[in-house]
């Protein structure tokens, strides 16, 4: 199993971390402003990247602007280190920046993520970079950009609660499960990118710096360390996260976000940790789930990965 890899050789045909220095400065200026005004969407001049917009170009540009030769990079996609997008982006930075890469959350100094926050608590000094498809939390409710900017400027967020009201009226609870809107530092309503609402509580009072990049929509925003982040709710319908009836089938974790995996065409299913590194670490520490070692379990833990 690949854990940590020492610094590979950088491809000298590209500038360090692919982007030219002027572009990185421009992105850094936007980042500084974003950190200074938590939750505020800062426009920036998003560049063409060697993959299609919507595949994480915003996150890649942010990572490219903050990464240095001494950094260690971890990339996750839906919590897993070994999915196509994660593997490609990790290989991209190994090639153009020559940085060390890792799958271990604790060892990484920069973690680029799509759809998840790692289960293991982050520490001070780490940077979490999110790939954001739609930075505007109000977009589905108000299609006009001029109007949403006014709503942000005036803190005019009533419409967001109308959406929550509709959920409760129709389903008896807030049915929004991902991209659940949050209020950052008591001021700006922000889209946390499509992370499950299970991860929302980890956004607030986090020791690490959190940066959000939306390449197609050309916006950058940030949550500085130790910032208050509140998920929107009603007084009598407080914010809740998802729960599962059974623990992870491989590592037995009852405190992590679980993915449902269909195991055959007869309706059998299992639930496994979406954070692949967290699951591996627990198994290495001797935790055993229901299906670990079984034929189905081996398909997920065995040959495919080694």
């Amino acid at each position: 199993m690949q854990k940590s890899v020492g610094p590979p050789k950088r491809d000298e045909a590209y500038n360090f971390a692919y982007l030219d220095e002027q572009t990185k400065r421009m992105v850094r200026r936007a980042l500084l402003k974003a950190v200074a005004v938590p939750g505020y969407q800062v426009p920036f001049g998003s560049r063409e990247m060697p993959l299609a917009r919507g595949w994480g170009t915003g996150g890649i540009q942010v990572t490219a602007s903050v990464i240095g030769p001494d950094d260690t990079l971890k990339v996750i996609d839906q919590g897993a280190d070994d999915t196509t997008n994660a593997v490609s982006i990790r290989r991209f930075f190994a090639r153009v920046a020559g940085v060390a890469t890792t799958e271990a959350t604790g060892e990484a100094s920069i973690i680029q993520t799509r759809h998840r926050i790692p289960e293991a608590p982050l520490r001070a000094g780490q940077i979490l970079v999110y790939q954001v498809p739609q930075p505007e939390p109000l977009r589905k409710l108000e299609p006009k950009e001029a109007e949403t900017r006014k709503m942000h400027a005036w803190g005019d967020y009533g419409l967001m609660h109308v959406r929550l009201y509709e959920d409760i009226a129709r389903f008896g609870r807030v049915a929004t499960t991902y991209s659940y809107p949050v209020l950052v530092n008591g001021r700006y309503v922000m889209s946390p990118s499509p992370i499950p609402k299970f991860d929302n509580p980890k956004l607030g009072m986090c020791a690490a710096l959190q940066l959000f990049g939306a390449g197609r929509e050309k916006r950058i925003y940030a949550i500085p360390p130790w910032t208050e982040v509140k998920s929107l709710d009603f007084d009598d319908h407080p914010f809740e996260v998802q729960t599962w009836d059974e623990p992870c089938a491989l590592c037995g974790a009852a405190d992590s976000y679980l993915d449902e995996v269909i195991t055959d065409d007869k309706g059998s299913r299992m639930f496994v940790c979406s954070d692949s590194h967290y699951c591996e670490e627990r198994r290495a520490a001797g935790h055993v789930g229901r299906l670990l070692g079984s034929e189905t379990g081996q398909k997920l833990t065995g040959g495919a990965k080694e």
Binding site: G158, H161, V162, Y165, E166, I168, A169, F234, D235, D236
Partner: peptide
């Protein structure tokens, strides 16, 4: 209900009931 509630929410009401 949401149409009627919007004005109250705008005013700052945050109690669904």
């Amino acid at each position: 209900g949401g149409n009627i509630g919007e004005r109250l929410i705008d005013r700052g009401d945050r109690h669904y009931g």
